[in-house]
Design a protein around this nucleic acid. Structure first.
Lengths: 211, 211
DNA sequence: TAGATTGTTAATCGATTAACAATC
DNA sequence: TAGATTGTTAATCGATTAACAATC
């Protein structure tokens, strides 16, 4: 079946709906209209209806959307019912922070181990997770059917890591290093570039000061 | 003077230009055309010229852009010549990782202290930075002319923190907690929502699997 | 000067918003 | 049934791309 191409703008709003629907459920709200969702999310009611109708008609004319149903549908669309076997590459401060981040376990991520080049870190445990030698990573991925790799290395190491990951059957890379890279198209890459984000904040502040 | 409103899409591409220009400088490249920049960045040459001309005519017809000059202009636009006195709120794993993150010192961020509620953390040092009691934060911000606050607390604490920050003269908030909030408009907010980002990766992977 | 490439206007494309028929 | 709100088509708006005159 032909699936209409859905834009990244739409996809990036889905987690927002997910989050606000949790809030509504916690408040015991059972039904919600696109107009009410608009007030909560800041998106227009029209946009919300358009977004949701990319995936199906989840509402009922006259009464709106059933909160719990809509939440489940969006969770499904986002694949949050799945669990992906995951490794973290780079066991420094950031890698450790991601390993311990609350909530990831609940959604999608099943973190199995960390990898590093530093002999001082290799062999350590980070909250019950082993830090393993980066040189063993290819075999580890194959033997343990790892599906997601999280890159928390310095940027100098990224190209080498990308080269290694490309040869595995990994499905996705979550990249925290402030550098772009390419891998073959069937590996999905999502980057969180802290430096870029900081620069945008810096821009906004310095603009404000010019007034 | 009236400054034409520049869209966030343009702003979020500026750090990419910044980063690729560093790469060119490291390779000793002196001049670059929009066509060459297009090959490197993946943006179209037309878009690159449009983007840059929002801020001024930095190129020369016939020969292109002088790499070092363009780099300096973009650094200026992003406010990277400034240094902002900064605190980190929340001294857990993520707060500590941000405090130690390489490269922030070089650009814009002058981190002065961390704050936490946890008595076990208060009084500690994180890489020569004091962890202070969250209850002293308003006075600290005022006394030290703090300009940026980085939120690394659990999401439950965010609304309270936002309420406090709103009453200060802070200029910007860099928010790492996975929750949205509003403050008055002259405080700029940039959020890095790790959960949202993970969900997008999860979406992309689960879509791929449906083929 | 001829060739190249910018700066900028015009055309196209895509995303958002508005409108309204369908229907609960 | 009357009122409300969705699902969806049409209109608008904004962003990207194309085209080309200006100019180095």
């Amino acid at each position: 079946m032909y699936q209409k191409k859905i834009s990244m703008n739409v996809i990036r709003r889905l987690p927002k709906y997910h989050s606000y629907l949790i809030e509504l459920m916690e408040r015991g709200v059972v039904k919600v209209s696109s107009r009410e969702l608009s007030e909560i999310t800041g998106f227009t009611a029209s946009q919300i209806r358009q977004d949701l109708n990319n995936f199906g008609g989840f509402g009922k004319q006259g009464s709106g959307y059933e909160v719990e149903l809509l939440f489940k549908e969006i969770s499904d669309i986002l694949g949050l019912n799945m669990s992906y076997k995951t490794i973290i590459i780079g066991a420094g401060n950031l890698g450790q922070a991601i390993a311990n981040y609350p909530g990831f376990k609940k959604y999608a991520l099943d973190i199995k181990a960390l990898f590093d080049v530093n002999p001082k870190l290799i062999g350590m445990k980070i909250h019950s997770l082993d830090v393993l030698d980066i040189d063993t990573i290819s075999d580890y991925i194959k033997d343990n059917n790892i599906e997601i790799a999280i890159i928390c290395t310095p940027k100098e190491a990224v190209k080498k890591v990308a080269r290694i990951l490309e040869k595995t059957n990994i499905k996705g890379i979550w990249n925290f290093a402030p550098v772009d890279f390419t891998v073959n198209a069937d590996i999905k890459v999502e980057s969180v570039n802290l430096t870029d984000s900081l620069f945008v904040l810096s821009y906004m502040i310095s603009q404000e000061e010019k007034n």
